[in-house]
């Protein structure tokens, strides 16, 4: 490892985050008020932290004011990422069917203009048992499905684009409180960046993983090099004695530039708080650069450059 950069007392490792191509779509959920739009969006993006076992990674991108939505009601913009278009289609259908169709007063629309279309309302319409109505408006097909509160309106399809998943930032803190506070500040800054989500709870993951395990059945296991409990024990540790807590922020974005922008914003927020706030170092997770085509070099991002 080359020379680290020290800014505001925080060490920035000369390393990079390694990210992967994914398939992504954006959905716009609207409802009677912002609360019900949020209820649907929270349910829909629940249990969607990692493709390892959730099928997809999903999160709320931002809330939408009425003048930003197709039907003029309050809404929420949601991004969903999966490893293939087929899996994404499956997840969209399940999640919209169980969490948006079911949620009072909601409607759902595609949030991207271009891309390969996958079903949005196309199959959910059959819930209407023959009473569903198709409507073409300005070249887009919508389905109106009778439900107990009126009708559920869903756009027929949503475009899928290539996305980038697995951008990350590791925050090495002196204690739990300082690492957590820094992570929260980083996530807050990243949430102001468009086209990205941080899919873990609150945007933060404490169980960073490495590839493989001593148990053959497991494909991933705890990232022992960053576990403070294992600093004196692991064959290879990345930590020093003063680091007692590590938090990770995982970032999925529609493009590598979006992930880079979010990483840069998060780093700036954390570094801006300085070492006095309890952050010792900032690092990133990678697999030696061999697995993922997108590399986000922290030093370059800190210097204002792009990622890969």
């Amino acid at each position: 490892m080359a020379e680290p950069i020290i800014d505001n007392g925080v060490v920035i490792d000369d390393t990079f985050a390694e990210a992967f191509p994914m398939k992504a779509t954006r959905l716009l959920i609207t409802a009677f008020d912002a609360n019900w739009a949020a209820n649907a969006a929270v349910a829909m993006t629940g249990f969607a932290t990692s493709v390892i076992a959730c099928g997809c990674e999903a999160g709320i991108e931002r809330t939408l004011s009425p003048d930003e939505t197709p039907d003029g009601r309050p809404g929420v913009s949601v991004l969903i990422f999966a490893m293939s278009g087929k899996e994404l289609a499956k997840q969209v259908e399940r999640r919209v069917g169980q969490c948006v169709l079911t949620c009072p007063t909601t409607a759902i629309f595609a949030g991207l203009d271009d891309g390969e279309p996958i079903a949005l309302g196309r199959n959910l319409r059959f819930f209407g048992d023959g009473w569903q109505i198709s409507k073409m408006i300005d070249g887009k097909r919508y389905w109106r499905v009778p439900v107990m509160d009126g009708e559920f309106v869903a756009e027929e399809t949503t475009p899928v684009v290539k996305g980038v998943g697995g951008g990350n930032l590791l925050i090495l803190g002196r204690d739990t409180a300082s690492a957590l506070a820094a992570a929260e500040a980083g996530v807050a800054a990243m949430r102001r960046v468009p086209n990205v989500i941080m899919p873990f709870p609150g945007g933060v993951v404490r169980s960073g993983s490495k590839v493989g395990s001593k148990y053959p059945a497991l494909m991933a296991s705890t990232n022992d090099a960053f576990c403070p409990a294992l600093t004196p024990l692991a064959k290879k540790t990345e930590l020093t004695d003063e680091v007692r807590c590590v938090m990770e922020i995982v970032i999925d974005g529609l493009t590598d530039a979006d992930v880079a922008a979010a990483t840069r914003a998060g780093m700036a927020a954390i570094v801006g708080r300085g070492s006095a706030a309890g952050v010792v170092r900032i690092s990133a997770g990678n697999y030696g650069g061999k697995l993922g085509p997108f590399h986000f070099h922290l030093h370059r991002l800190h210097g204002g450059e792009g990622g890969t």
């Binding site: 039907d71 009601r73 007063t105 409507k135 009778p146 009126g150 009708e151 309106v153």
Partner: peptide, 14 residues
Amino acid sequence: AHDIGVFWALLARS
């Protein structure tokens, strides 16, 4: 007598 506000918003805009 049901609420068709969503559909109406889409159609009225069009």
